[in-house]
């Protein structure tokens, strides 16, 4: 981070210039040598560390998930990019939309409103079931999506029976629109029992999309859906 210098002198030369000129040469050199690292460190400090830009005020409700925050710009851009990629790479999923809808429909249960005070951590207002999809998915694989009251808590995903991750594999959780739109909600790994429970921000209204989808992904740097879905379910009753 050494980026800024106002002259060509070395840190040692600057130290030498600072110390008492009346000292004997050897003593003067020793003191300059002693101060040199501090000068070098000060020279390397970037402007942002000297005087920081003022951070925005904490949006407590958005950070804690007590309200559904506006989707961050970054995520919105990501969504657009993924939408294009999805159509390009996986048109068969879009074409098969009707079949998918019929299949996942069986996995949906009625929304559940928990009584007041039953949980101070997470109070779901809807509980949606995800069912296994694809040939490589263990028969017992399933998932639940808990959606809290709007304006209170984020979303919770609870999966079980999935194949434990190998190497750099991981699972990714998506919102899938009926026209193939994709929004990544987050990614996770499972334990050796194939289970995981994660709480994730919900930056968009899931009702605007048709399905929740869990895919298996590889750490290959590609942000696109792999096309290998393992769980899927409707986003609303």
């Amino acid at each position: 981070m050494t980026e800024r210098r106002d002259d060509d002198s070395s840190a040692f030369e600057e130290a030498l210039d600072l110390v008492d000129g009346n000292q004997a040469g050897e003593s003067r050199d020793a003191e300059a040598k002693h101060l040199e690292p501090a000068i070098a460190m000060l020279r390397s400090i970037p402007r942002e560390a000297w005087k920081a830009p003022l951070p925005p005020r904490l949006d407590l409700e958005a950070v804690t998930g007590r309200k559904q925050a506006e989707a961050p710009r970054v995520l919105r851009e990501s969504s657009r990019r993924r939408r294009a990629g999805f159509f390009g790479s996986w048109p068969r999923l879009v074409a098969g939309g009707m079949a998918v809808a019929a299949m996942v429909g069986v996995g949906v249960v009625l929304g559940l409103v928990l009584g007041g005070g039953s949980s101070t951590e997470f109070t779901p207002s809807e509980r949606l079931v995800l069912s296994g999809i694809g040939e490589e998915v263990p028969s017992g694989a399933s998932g639940e999506v808990l959606i809290a009251d709007r304006g209170s808590e984020p979303l919770e995903l609870d999966v079980s029976g999935l194949k434990p991750n190998e190497g750099k594999e991981f699972y990714e959780f998506w919102l899938l629109g009926k026209k193939g739109e994709l929004v990544s909600l987050g990614s996770f790994r499972v334990d050796q029992e194939g289970s995981s429970r994660v709480r994730l921000p919900l930056p968009v209204n899931p009702a605007d999309y048709g399905y929740f989808d869990v895919s298996i992904e590889k750490e290959d740097g590609s942000p696109e859906h792999s096309g290998k879905s393992v769980l899927r379910g409707l986003t609303k009753v």
């Binding site: 990501s78 990714e172 996770f188 790994r189």
Partner: peptide, 13 residues
Amino acid sequence: DVLRKRVPSPVDP
């Protein structure tokens, strides 16, 4: 993640 436009690191138990 943003600079590389990569998928956010997976949540690992």
